[in-house]
């Protein structure tokens, strides 16, 4: 069976609203990282012109699971998936909704200073800013999961069969790293949160499906949950100068 993906591009002009331009000028930023969701990322010429006109240098990247430069996915919530090598003053996101730009905030969770994400919504012609404050509540809980992982003995690893998830091999590295812990492997398609409590012998869960589940949906897990990416380096994360120390 063949699959045809259609991007459903936004078919009107995309340009920054006055509020966004004034905000960025007042902040005196000079170098920004520019991203957009797939509906907008192929039509950013006007936005780039506007930014250059006020002296902004635009940096971007092609995150590793995307098809094109500047495209941002909701799962680009780790710095290494963004493939961004240069330092910037702030992040800039074009699109609607908070799900995608929050990934840019999460991607900085292990750093000393979280840079703000300026969001311009070309549909509503509005601007908003996302900062560490927008994810602090989730990160506090997540820090608890990191600490719990260090002492947990019986751990359930959730592996999903959606194409591109399927993270059994990377997850199995944990067994070699933590030989005194017992790991159980669970398979699912879309994660069945209501089934988790049927396994009371599990101390906590490792999520290998969409990493946003580990951050945004922790309240649906009765026990702690940690993304595989962080479980593989839990000790180092807790020692680093960041929100987690």
């Amino acid at each position: 069976m063949e699959t045809l993906f259609l991007e459903a591009p936004y078919d009107k002009n995309i340009k920054l609203c006055t509020e966004t331009l004034n905000y960025i000028k007042n902040k005196k930023y000079t170098k920004v990282a520019l991203y957009a969701s797939v509906q907008f990322c192929n039509n950013l010429q006007k936005v780039e012109e506007q930014l250059k006109k006020i002296g902004i240098t635009i940096i971007s990247s092609k995150p590793k699971r995307t098809q094109c430069q500047k495209q941002l996915l909701g799962c680009d919530c780790y710095k290494d998936s963004l493939n961004l090598t240069e330092e910037v003053d702030c992040y800039f996101y074009i699109g609607d909704g908070r799900f995608h730009p929050l990934a840019l905030v999460y991607s900085q969770k292990d750093t000393k200073k979280v840079k703000e994400v300026i969001c311009d919504n070309p549909i509503a012609k509005t601007m908003s800013v996302l900062t560490l404050d927008d994810i602090t509540r989730n990160l506090k809980r997540y820090k608890g999961s990191l600490i719990k992982f260090m002492s947990a003995k019986s751990i359930g690893i959730i592996i999903t069969i959606k194409p591109g998830q399927e993270q059994y091999k990377p997850a199995s590295k944990l067994e070699k790293m933590y030989i005194h812990k017992k790991f159980y492997y669970f398979i699912d398609n879309t994660l069945s949160f209501d089934q988790l409590e049927n396994f009371p012998f599990i101390d906590m869960w490792i999520n290998t499906a969409c990493p946003r589940i580990g951050f945004d949906d922790h309240e649906l897990f009765r026990k702690s949950v940690l993304n595989l990416h962080d479980a593989l380096q839990a000790d180092a994360i807790l020692r680093k100068e960041s929100f987690f120390k």
Binding site: F5, V38, Q67
Partner: peptide, 28 residues
């Protein structure tokens, strides 16, 4: 990454998925 699985069993010839483009798979 979230395409319906098992459509072959229903003899679906073509899946058309809106709102995304092809996902670059990582090691799995």
């Amino acid at each position: 990454c979230d395409v319906p699985l098992g459509l072959n069993r229903l003899h679906i010839d073509l899946l058309i998925s809106w709102g995304h483009n092809k996902f670059q798979k990582e090691e799995g």
